[in-house]
Amino acid sequence: MTAGGSADPAVRPALDPPARFGLGRVSDLLWRHPGATVTAMLALPALWLCVIYLGSLAALLAHSFFSIDHFSGMVRYDLTLDTYAELFTPANFDIILRTVAMAAAVTLASAVIAFPIAYFAARYARGRWKALFYLGIMLPLWSSYLVKVYAWKLILAREGILTWLFETLHLSWLLDAYLALPVVGGTSLSTSYTGTFLVFIYAWLPFMVLPIQAALERVPASMLDASSDLGARPSQTFRHVVLPLAAPGIVAGSIFTFSLTLGDYIIPQIVGSSRLFIGQAVYTHQGTAGNIPLAAAFAVVPIVIMAVYLWIAKRAGAFDAL
């Protein structure tokens, strides 16, 4: 066995001299300064995110400490907590409570609906079914948000498919009785809290399914076998093994459903009663009213709520499932 080729390795230098020009020289320089290389790569994205995004958040935060002159409608650029105090007027505080209650209800319901989907996809779906479930969850996640909302406007409309369904089944009395209920009822489903609630669940459901599925995928089947081997009935295995291991996934999903509900202003505007949610308050105050300070103060509310929520979730170890 001999190495092919002509050059005698002995006469070849072991090291090449550095390049004097061109990309080779730039490569040498970058190689010699790896810190500078990373800095150069990060410069553009860091500049963009820091200046544009963090700068905007700072501008928002700053505005929340300004106030509006109610006579001229101009922003007064003096630091004050008056705008935050306005949040605690009964009308505004109602908006906050209403939004948080809705976010909590949506999160709970999403978790209940999402769990069987995630559990089936993680534990039982194989091959084709696995791909089908995967696409079945990814497509709604990415498909148009507005179209989803619009579809539900069609479904919940007084002359829409749901009313037709109840009529066909001769159950109209049931729908009427439900709509007559306080709080959840209304003149039609599309103008009730129930309608808002349904659309929220629909829009955020994929955000709940995926983290739960990811958490369940990580549970080795041998662990379930071990549980049943140790004498647990399936229900006990579920209660004591599966559910605790899925919990970080549920918390991770809830971060999305909670945060998205807190900030949304389009769903309650299209489907729901005329009472405002936080997102709508932000939208109206900055828009027609031109009260950017109050809009900014309202926008800080979800940030604070989410910060507290994330802090709790982090302590519960939910980020491993993200």
Binding site: P13, A14, L15, D16, P17, P18, S27, D28, R32
Partner: peptide, 16 residues
Amino acid sequence: IFGKSAVGVPPYRRHV
């Protein structure tokens, strides 16, 4: 490496 200083020589300039 073969008597020449390898200080500051990147891997792609070494016949190693």
